[in-house]
């Protein structure tokens, strides 16, 4: 692969200084960046290894009951923590439905936000891709394929964001803490990723040198703990990206939905929060009609490209199913097959 400088700064300030240079890339778990370097899709001049930065590899419970998760926390560690999983069960389920055990052990939560699309043309440097190389064109347009976006796509790019975790974060109202040359700031997760528009090469709101330092979940999000699910449809039971997925959370008071959250994965270049659907559910009875109507509303603006039309009704259905299962109650234990519509079998009968 292309030669690059490898830096391993000891402090955040040094990391930001090193990461601001043109051609620099931050390296954390490496589960996505290294793959792209192997295909030649990513050719950084400088790798800034942030895995030794102090203090980013842990989470802390905030005084108000919120949770602040350091960017270098490993997906497995977070998902397997009992307090975390009980407080934000859909987030833990989303994490455990992603990738494979080995990858979750290596991958970090900050890196999860920074994942590149798995569009095959993005990963292949010999194909045109506006996201990888601005203005080179979009080889995906016109191809009959199942994976592409049905919401928020543009002529320039129809790629999807691959994350499961981010879908749950979007529903939970997570905030992303960012540090950079101009100091620190907080961005709503739902504002963190950009829709492609005319400039798909810019995938997040991060400015040069900025990096994710933490993800914060507001205390109020814990109010959904009793009615929260993440569901994911995929081509095999594990180690597969979502065709479509949904995070659904409800706060039910006296048999009425006091508050609802609904977000989708696999449908857009960002985790897709469905605010209209949430508003429609507020004050409704938690029944099948309400869920179906709300989920359908979430897909009202959807548009198919060749070969992915089925994803629009399918997303509405999985949204309704996730809401239905959330209403039925968060399972007492993590499902054997996290994110699956199938119950699975106990690992050891």
């Amino acid at each position: 692969m292309k030669s690059f400088d490898y830096l391993r700064p000891e402090t955040l300030a040094d990391a930001i200084a090193a990461g601001g240079a043109p051609g620099a890339a931050y390296l954390a778990g490496g589960t996505n960046l290294v793959d792209l370097m192997k295909t030649g899709a990513a050719v950084p001049d400088r790798i800034v290894d942030i895995t030794r930065l102090p203090g980013l590899d842990r989470w802390e419970w905030l005084d108000d009951g919120g949770l602040r998760i350091g960017a270098l926390v490993r997906n497995s560690d977070l998902a397997h923590d009992v307090d975390v999983a009980q407080t934000f069960p859909a987030m833990a389920e989303a994490l455990l439905s992603g990738a494979s055990g080995q990858l979750r052990n290596a991958a970090t939560v900050g890196g999860n936000l920074m994942q590149a699309t798995r569009c095959p043309f993005f990963a292949d440097p010999t194909s045109s891709c506006n996201r990888r190389e601005a203005g080179s064109g979009c080889a995906a347009q016109g191809l009959s394929a199942r994976a592409f976006a049905v919401l928020g796509a543009s002529e320039a790019c129809i790629a999807t964001h691959p994350s499961d975790f981010c879908v749950a974060l979007a529903a939970l109202g997570a905030m992303v803490e960012v540090a950079g040359p101009d100091g620190t700031r907080a961005v709503a997760l739902t504002d963190f990723h950009r829709l492609p528009g005319a400039a798909p090469q810019t995938t997040t709101v991060l400015k040069p040198g900025e990096l994710v330092t933490a993800i914060t979940l507001p205390a109020a999000a814990a109010g959904f703990r009793r009615h929260a699910r993440y569901l994911k449809l995929r081509d095999r039971t594990s180690f597969a990206f979502a065709l479509v997925s949904a995070a659904a959370m409800l706060r039910i008071e006296d048999g009425i939905i006091a508050e609802a959250r609904l977000a989708f994965g696999g449908v857009a270049a960002k985790p897709w929060r469905a605010l209209d659907a949430e508003a429609a559910l507020k004050g409704a009875r938690p029944d099948a009609d309400a869920f179906a109507t709300a989920a359908a509303r979430a897909l009202e603006g959807a548009a198919a490209t060749a070969g992915n039309g089925f994803k629009i009704p399918l997303a509405a259905r999985i949204g309704a199913r996730a809401l239905t299962l959330a209403a039925a109650g968060t399972p007492a234990e993590m499902p054997v097959l996290p994110g699956s519509v199938h119950l699975g079998e106990p690992a050891h009968a």
Partner: peptide, 22 residues
């Protein structure tokens, strides 16, 4: 890809074989 004759899923992430949980 019928337009080019190229294979779109040339890796283990996308060329699926069954895993244990299948």
């Amino acid at each position: 890809d019928p337009r080019t004759g190229r294979i779109l899923n040339r890796d283990f992430g996308e060329y699926h074989v069954s895993v244990n949980s299948d």
